[in-house]
Simulated assay, not measured.
Amino acid sequence: MTSTGTSSPVLHGGRRASARLRDGVVPLETGGVRRRIPVAAIERVDVHGAGGRRLTVVLTGGGSVAYHLRCRSAPAVEAFAHAVRRALPVRDAGEPRPDGAALVTEEPLERAAPNRVRRLCWAAGSGYALGLVLLPVAGAGAAVVILWVAAPAAIAGGVVGVRAGGKVLRETWVLRTRGITVEGRLQRSRRGEGGSDLYTYAYVDGEGVRRELTSSDGGGERADITYDPADPGTAEIGRRSPGLLVFGAVLTLLFAPFLLAGVAFVVVGVVALVV
């Protein structure tokens, strides 16, 4: 069994493969199958391969059945193997071993839902790279190629700015229209990475849950804390001023043209390829 004083070790491999040690069992997920391997069914655990990055779990019963997992981190493989070895039962040399394969249970893993955002990013990146190659071949002018090259930076900058401005607008509006204010007590303070002082206040929300908020605002023994009852994680010390609404709107309007310009650059390139 794993020690109660340490966390259960986890080993991650390629293609979503993983192995864990939990309550005397090694759940091993590889090839779309989850195998639950009791430590009593394990004869030994080997670490080998280039740089010691491959873990092999050999079952009892002659060692003819073994499972493998490759990980990029050699220290992680060694640490996991060490944890499993410590959990193995102590056996005498002449003690009969059970048939390890018979003790292992298997079940198919549910396929993860497709990551649409990742697929969209891959499609957009592939299309952009293809356009970068085809534009000179199609005889597009240098100006069109330059716009195509500048499009990703303009779109990325626009998205970051618009999202930041939208977040300020949303949080400020939510806290001003439905925020609940309670009194928090100072728990501790520390110096932040930027050199400013950070203060942590504790408060209890309307559901009776104790929460903490760390901010550069405050400093006194008590401070008013306003939080969103629908999302207590959205909270602030005091109440946001109307100026933050203006700041969020200005930030959004300032970066929106970059986003629109980037989209326009892409359209110009696509038109040059099609026409």
Rank of each mutant, 00 (worst) to 15 (best):
R163Y: 09
A138M: 04
D23H: 08
G14Q: 09
P152H: 10
V246N: 00
W173F: 13
G14V: 13
R176V: 03
L251I: 03
V58F: 04
R191M: 01
V246A: 11
V274D: 08
A81C: 03
L132C: 06
R16F: 08
A124P: 08
E106M: 03
D197Q: 15
I180N: 04
V209W: 01
R240T: 12
R111T: 07
F258L: 15
T200Y: 00
A140G: 09
G206P: 03
V246Q: 00
L245N: 09
V159F: 14
V33M: 14
P9C: 02
R211I: 10
G62M: 15
V275E: 01
S18R: 13
E207P: 03
L55Y: 01
G127T: 02
A223C: 11
V145R: 13
G62P: 06
A249E: 11
G13N: 04
F255I: 14
I146W: 06
L254H: 01
R210E: 14
V26A: 00
C71V: 04
L260P: 04
V45N: 07
E193I: 12
E43L: 10
V137W: 05
R222T: 15
P9Y: 03
P152E: 05
E107G: 14
V65P: 02
V84D: 03
G269N: 13
S241Y: 11
D228T: 12
R188G: 01
T226D: 02
P96L: 14
A143Y: 00
S196M: 12
G14D: 11
R190F: 15
S8P: 03
E207T: 12
G24S: 06
V266N: 02
